[in-house]
Design a protein around this nucleic acid. Structure first.
Lengths: 146, 146
DNA sequence: CCCTCATTTAGAATTATTCTAAATCTTGAC
DNA sequence: GTCAAGATTTAGAATAATTCTAAATGAGGG
């Protein structure tokens, strides 16, 4: 736990789950840890593989269950950038995702949504923003020009 | 063609496809028409069902092919709001999607992206923005309070 | 300790999308 | 016009992603 866990909420996972009506379980802890170990927006299957290393009996269904519980408890975000597998992200600060359509890399960029004044449909109650920017990362752009 | 096709690009579909290396076909025309007939962000399967009414022999694989051709030609956008089927949208003006997490309805709201100054990762070449706002629509919000 | 209910698990089932191979169609060269 | 090359369509198979099911386990409250 020495490494990069900047801004990880110090609130007890136990408590955060409890507020949303979920129980704390070792599996949920493990899945949450996996998300923090490498913030590279893994898919459910990638989380499954990584979780298995230290918890070999965990099942795919449990990974989905845990991810859903974390999302519903406000401890992780679902990120749907394109067709195919959904990705997950434990960064709950307001930010947007720069997505390289060529190599698939995702970059988190802090972005305060109040800086953009958007006209809402009448009576719409906003829960959260989901901002993706598609394009070419520097590396892939360089490759294309060569 | 009398109805609501505001802002539909008057450019020839033929030509727009051609520029991207695709051929014009009746199926692509039909799929494009379906998207304009009812701008409710249908899934590929919904497009398939609607397209079939006037073109009974069209197949699912063709619908996917046509949608991909339209997206690659800049005539439609892919919209991935949540897990599950991708939706499609022929509105190419800059706009964001307000999405009701309860009833699934999608509202297009014009939104000039240059109004939000975002810091890009170094060297990133932006292709397009994909902005979703999740929450509760007016109708669903009302229902919850009663 | 017992009851209830949440959770986990493996595997089946479902849904969404992509792939394959054969048939058809278009286009450009001759 | 005829022909070859290559794009497109089609049905169906295959794959990928997710959800469901039913049985087993586990934890908390009385």
């Amino acid at each position: 736990m020495s490494v990069v866990d900047t801004k990880r909420p110090n609130n007890d996972l136990n408590q955060r789950l409890g507020v949303s009506g979920f129980r704390f379980t070792p599996q949920r802890q493990r899945v949450y840890d996996v998300l923090w170990e490498k913030r590279d927006h893994p898919t459910a299957e990638e989380v499954f593989i990584r979780a298995k290393h230290r918890m070999p009996d965990i099942s795919m269904a449990t990974v989905y269950n845990c991810l859903d519980a974390l999302v519903k408890s406000g401890l992780a975000r679902q990120v749907t950038l394109e067709r195919g597998a959904t990705r997950f992200c434990p960064n709950m600060e307001e930010h947007c995702h720069y997505y390289c359509d060529t190599c698939g890399e995702v970059f988190d960029v802090p972005f305060p949504t109040e800086s953009a004044v958007m006209p809402h449909p009448l009576g719409f109650k906003v829960d959260h923003y989901d901002i993706a920017v598609h394009g070419l990362c520097a590396a892939c752009a360089a490759q294309k020009n060569s």
